[in-house]
């Protein structure tokens, strides 16, 4: 076994401590350390350094881990929603096509047309497009005016039929797309926006629509739509957007009712956090109506989010209320 210089030995101290030296290298280094007092002392210092480095390791708290897991679950649900809606939409079309259900076919007709309908699925791939209106340039047009332009529509093959002359007859369901533009406070635009805010298939569309509606939250029908979205939308992102629009109206009775409801029942900690901030004001010493006390006490007993619990506790303490129910 060849000897080792002190310089080489020092370079390998940390690798020895990490167990990353080959068997032969480890043997050589240990032999050197036994024979060299200076390197042996240096190695002892290296060990102390390693021990000192251990002292700064951070272990994340269980509450942080819990918050991370809760949020991930909510975000995964958001990821899944459009995918499921998309799949459901296609499945519906597929089954409609095969059974002729929506076209009013009897079961026999559905059976007869299955091969042709299956072929038509290929065509659907080309024709399928969103059937909901496309909004663009909202607010960019002249004030209080609406403009509409025609656009090639989306088509759907309803059924196909072989003709007597070797041709084929295809029946299409067609929906023309139109671009509608106007200010959000225009009544016709408003109606479309309120409908889009409830589109069950597209959370992205709902979020964008709610975002636009937020600018008109002074209107009672818009506020109702925002409250509806806050209470019932499946997507936490949409609910958070609706909360943003309702911020300025957090003193209104119907808004406070909705906030209290989501604080107790919403599955998303981010939504609950925003709700408690709005219900209890920005400062913990702010006066909060007495009827909130019971709800906050109930929340303390069931809430597992550390921030919300702390917020509850502070507000209850500021009101000289017990943090527990008896």
């Amino acid at each position: 076994m060849s000897s080792m210089t002190c310089e080489t030995a020092r370079e390998q101290f940390s690798l020895l401590l990490y167990g990353e030296l080959s068997f032969d290298d480890e043997e050589r280094l240990e032999s050197h350390l036994e024979a060299c007092a200076e390197c042996s002392a240096g190695f002892a210092r290296e060990k102390s350094l390693h021990t000192a480095l251990d002292g700064i390791e951070i272990t994340p708290s269980p509450s942080l881990l819990r918050v991370c897991r809760e949020e991930l679950r909510a975000r995964l649900a958001e990821e899944e929603a459009p995918r499921k809606a998309h799949l459901a939409g296609w499945w519906e079309q597929f089954t409609d096509l095969l059974t002729g259900h929506k076209a009013g076919f009897g079961s026999r007709a559905g059976f007869v047309w299955k091969p042709a309908a299956a072929l038509s699925l290929i065509a659907i791939g080309f024709f399928a497009a969103r059937l909901t209106p496309v909004f663009s340039s909202v607010g960019a047009g002249p004030q209080n005016s609406m403009s509409m332009t025609g656009d090639p529509g989306s088509s759907r093959v309803r059924y196909v039929e072989p003709g007597s002359d070797g041709k084929v007859q295809i029946v299409l369901d067609e929906t023309r797309q139109r671009v509608v533009s106007g200010r959000p406070d225009d009544q016709k635009i408003r109606v479309l926006l309120l409908a889009a805010a409830q589109d069950p298939a597209d959370p992205g569309l709902r979020a964008e629509t709610v975002n636009i509606l937020n600018t008109s939250a002074q209107s009672a029908d818009v506020r109702d739509a925002l409250i509806q979205a806050l209470r019932h939308d499946q997507n936490a992102g949409v609910r958070l957007k609706a909360l943003e629009g309702l911020k300025a109206y957090s003193q209104e009775r119907d808004v406070r009712g909705a906030l209290a409801d989501v604080l107790l029942h919403d599955s998303n900690p981010g939504v609950r956090t925003q709700a408690i901030d709005l219900l209890t004001g920005s400062g913990s010493k702010q006066t909060v109506e007495r009827n909130l006390v019971g709800m906050l006490q109930e929340l303390m007993s069931r809430e597992n989010n550390a921030y919300i619990r702390e917020r509850c506790r502070r507000v209850l303490e500021a009101m000289n209320a017990s943090v527990e129910t008896y």
Binding site: I58, P60, L65, V67, C68, E71, L72, R75, L76
Partner: peptide, 26 residues
Amino acid sequence: QSVLRLAMNLLRSTEDAHDVYQEAFL
């Protein structure tokens, strides 16, 4: 847990570690 611990020790910020956790698993 080990992902969060790694992010926390590298970034030394609960906020950034939380972001990395979410983005990684997404």
